[in-house]
Amino acid sequence: MFLFDPFFWEVVISGLLAGVMYALVALGFVLIFKASGIFNFAQGVLALFAALTLVGFQTGQIPFAHLLEALFGLHASHWGEGMNTVLALFLSLVVMIGLAWLIVKIVLRPLVNQEGIILFMATIGLAFVLEGVGDLMWGANVKRLDVGLPEGPSDFLLDNTGMFIEKLEISAAVVAIILVVTLMIFSQYTKMGRALRAVADDHQAALSVGISLETIWWVVWSISGLVALVAGVMWGAKSGVQFSLSLIALKALPVLMLGGFTSIPGAIIGGLMIGVGEKMFEFYIGPMIGGATENWFAYMLALLFLLFRPQGLFGEKIIERV
């Protein structure tokens, strides 16, 4: 009976944990899409940028060291020993908030009222800029990120059940759950949260009761900056901080399709479903057809679901009028 097979449960649990990570990235998309109707392709690069900044602060790198060397011949790459993790996290968050302000002012403000595809393209342009700036500031080499999270397999589970589960993934899941709950409370019980929901509901009505769109957008982009930072830390601690980190955005897209672009619970449940589905498929069917199915399986699964529910599992029903 497969239910008693520890391998089966190992696959399910590691799928669930991976799903939490996908959900984390997808969450950043949903927040921005709800509040401003922007399909933010830069979310993955945002996570990369946040992780690069964090590592830079932690290890005490001088920003733009390469460029300074090329321009003025300065041969310094570090200003000191670096700082402790908490301070570095805080400073990175400040940088992300500042970045959110810049994005809203420079990119989004002039593009108000444009079609979705134009805004989508603008965020791809933004992704290019951020990628270039991040690499130029902190260098493009692969960096190790250590924020003091436990590593290695969990001994407790290994001894008692024979399952091999990374401690890091468990703590990532815990952090993600805390983050999601905090966001839920923020959006349900605070004044700013109510304003956010109002904007998500109807831009014009929100404007007419005196909510400043620009402030809301800034807050939303800051929050997704925070989500990007958390996602960047988790993925960075797992596989190093490098360019491929920005590709997690591509992992989050099928999650969005499955859960619906506008639903926060959808992002979470979609993430879990895709995480488990992907791992099961790779484990049981992958070897038969050559493996490495993780790249496309999620998309195919989402596509199948969409054929039956074109707005995703939890998306708002699409009503079309002529």
Binding site: I106, V107, L111, Q114, I118, M121, A122, I124, G125, L126, A127, F128, V129, L130, E131, G132, V133, D135, L136, A140
Partner: peptide, 15 residues
Amino acid sequence: FIQIILIGSLIIFFL
């Protein structure tokens, strides 16, 4: 890197 930044900014600028 500068080329990526410039292309990205040009895209945004044109949009």
